[in-house]
Design a protein around this nucleic acid. Structure first.
Lengths: 157, 157
DNA sequence: CTTCTATAGTTACGATTGAAACCAAAAGTC
DNA sequence: GACTTTTGGTTTCAATCGTAACTATAGAAG
């Protein structure tokens, strides 16, 4: 005893709360893309980035998705095998792939999007416009601190 | 074209932002417990819940940690093999384990806690007291909606 | 008592993941 | 134009993870 005020409680520890929060939110969304459509997170993100019109290389998907290239490569394979995605080779740089959704992929995408939007709406239902802005701002500020911490340790560690 | 206002952008999609946020925060914390101490998330949580004084069964750890029993079982095994945790059998109910950190485990814990607290502090550095309350409240409200959604789908799906 | 169910925890096994090695094409360098 | 390095993407292999099956004990029902 003596320093009881300092007892550590996981349940009130901020990073733990954040992770739990994110898991809960993710599960709500996975109800749609995973349970209902059988897509993995990487597959869903890949489709979401391509959308109906974009034509991108794998590395452009990497840039926009916070996935690594292995994840993207596997998602592309799997989406191809389902017939949701078409891969061509870039004529000017034959290392590059040229990816776009197939008509079938677009059909699924168009079906899926209103549903994931509905989930987003439900999640944010009782937030005011300004609540949402505040939330985004807070997440942004905290993320910046987190990135600082990681970078600092990387160099000094 | 025609409904360009509805083009889907993953980067501004709320659940995606949340997940990215949580990943960034988690990485900052993992710098400590994973990089510096070689603990997995499950091991770290198990230690954090036991702390210096608690004596708990595995299922009590499950309840307090949002891990499942397999995760806890494996974390316990691994912490035992490192000598950080001691397992006895409950005399009254011989199915139950009686878990506590060893002296060595407590030493590591006491070393670790100020560091993870420092990370938490750094993350929240530029939030006011009321910002933090707002953040917690918003996460709480959104989580509730997310849980509703999951439950709804479970029953009606 | 015997049987049936429920609980605590572990184990086995397939699926998923991540890091590193790898391959192929392109782009510099001399 | 041979050489080295960089870039785009895939494959491999081991480690991790989740689900389901399993073991052991306890408790409830008859």
């Amino acid at each position: 005893m003596g320093h009881n005020a300092m007892v550590f409680e996981l349940g009130t520890f901020f990073p733990y709360r954040v992770r739990k929060f994110a898991t809960t939110v993710s599960e709500a969304l996975q109800q749609i893309y995973s349970v209902e459509y059988g897509l993995t997170t990487s597959e869903w993100r890949t489709m979401a980035i391509l959308g109906t019109k974009n034509i991108l290389s794998a590395s452009e998907i990497v840039e926009r998705s916070s996935m690594d290239k292995v994840n993207v490569s596997r998602a592309v394979q799997s989406l191809r095998s389902r017939g949701y995605l078409k891969r061509d080779i870039d004529g000017d740089d034959r290392r590059k792939s040229v990816l776009r959704l197939t008509d079938e992929g677009i059909r699924v995408f168009d079906d899926l999007i209103p549903k994931v939007r509905a989930v987003e709406e439900r999640l944010l239902k009782d937030l005011s416009e300004s609540d949402l802005l505040i939330m985004m701002d807070l997440m942004e500020r905290i993320s910046q601190r987190a990135e600082e911490l990681v970078k600092q340790r990387e160099t000094s560690g």
